[in-house]
Design a protein around this nucleic acid. Structure first.
Lengths: 187, 187
DNA sequence: AATAATCACAAACAAACTGTTTGGTATCTT
DNA sequence: AAGATACCAAACAGTTTGTTTGTGATTATT
């Protein structure tokens, strides 16, 4: 990819992140992004068809990072036990949300990030369906599988919002415990 | 209240409802509302300072209806067992969502109703805190009360979205059962 | 090193939306 | 009947959007 392209793309993403932490998606104008990123008007529309597509691509970028298993090498914390261990997986993701240089939490909680939350839940659902529902033949099957997946991802997002709204006072480990306490009994 | 005022107010609410079922809140313009409601531009701004306030007032209106206990007299279904009976309460609300002449479900599920969902959850949380957490001294207190309230309301909204996304194939009773199946164990 | 392709940019543009003002008309209240 | 209240069209300045045009800079190709 052209170095120039990558540069402006990064600038836009960064500017967008800054703005998303300040105000809600719907109140951010393309003009704001252009100003914050310090690029030309034409350039923005060269890269993204619209503000919505920008969000979409940025989410794909961010969440691919947060939910990737490849990051084990980073060494920030221990990942060795993750596979098949729901609680460790939750903790893992929460650490990522805290760590990330880009302000994901700010975006997730800043009221009204409809689309953003939607994407987050999409990624989450996939992850849950793949890794948390393994022993599902063993369960009583009182509810459909996809209902359960939906329930867990809703709860996860809800947890994060609660966490952030209350000032992130709890540690990721503590939040995982809360989360598992309300989720585990239903699995 | 002046009959004229009430009339335009209703027209605006109705138009807004129609539009919300069609497209997301952020894509609805004041102009759309004016056209759909067939009122003058000035009139709209006489009633509502902005689109956001319109939503806010409309939500207050709708949810006060859905969550009110006074509706027992309507006779659409049985309310006698509601108090202290979480499952009946859930069923009760689901019926209301289906019944209501105003398309609440359409609004709740049409992607991206940030604010709308927010208001819905506010009402829900209050209801839950008041009626579903009575025996809470009995519980193990593994998680904070407000975390639990948040968890339940998140799950409720998530359930509704799943329900609607899948075409409302299940009966309210069935959905209540699903819901209680995943929620009850954690209470 | 020269050439071609790609990218960034400013400036100007039409179109749509917002929120307000003005002046006039219909409806309600007393 | 008179005054108050609500409605309305028309016009408005100010934003925002997405596009077009022409130009200069950077990168890739040969």
């Amino acid at each position: 990819m052209d170095r120039r392209q990558q540069k402006t793309r990064d600038a836009i993403f960064k500017a967008f992140g800054v703005l998303l932490a300040q105000k809600s998606f719907s109140k951010i104008t393309v003009q704001d992004i252009i100003d914050e990123a310090n690029i030309g008007r034409t350039t923005f529309y060269d890269h993204f068809e619209t503000k919505d597509y920008l969000l979409k691509e940025m989410c794909a970028d961010l969440f691919a990072h947060v939910f990737s298993d490849k990051l084990s090498a980073e060494g920030t914390h221990d990942f060795s036990l993750i596979t098949g261990n729901p609680r460790a997986m939750v903790t893992h993701i929460l650490y990522h949300l805290l760590d990330d240089e880009r302000n994901i939490l700010g975006m997730l909680t800043n009221e009204s990030n409809e689309l953003f939350l939607g994407f987050f839940r999409e990624y989450l659902s996939e992850l849950i369906a793949d890794h948390m529902l393994n022993g599902l033949e063993l369960r009583g099957k009182r509810v459909p599988d996809d209902f359960l997946v939906n329930h867990i991802s809703s709860s996860f997002v809800g947890m994060i919002q609660w966490w952030s709204r209350n000032g992130l006072k709890q540690s990721p480990e503590e939040m995982s415990e809360y989360f598992m306490a309300v989720i585990a009994p239903s699995i």
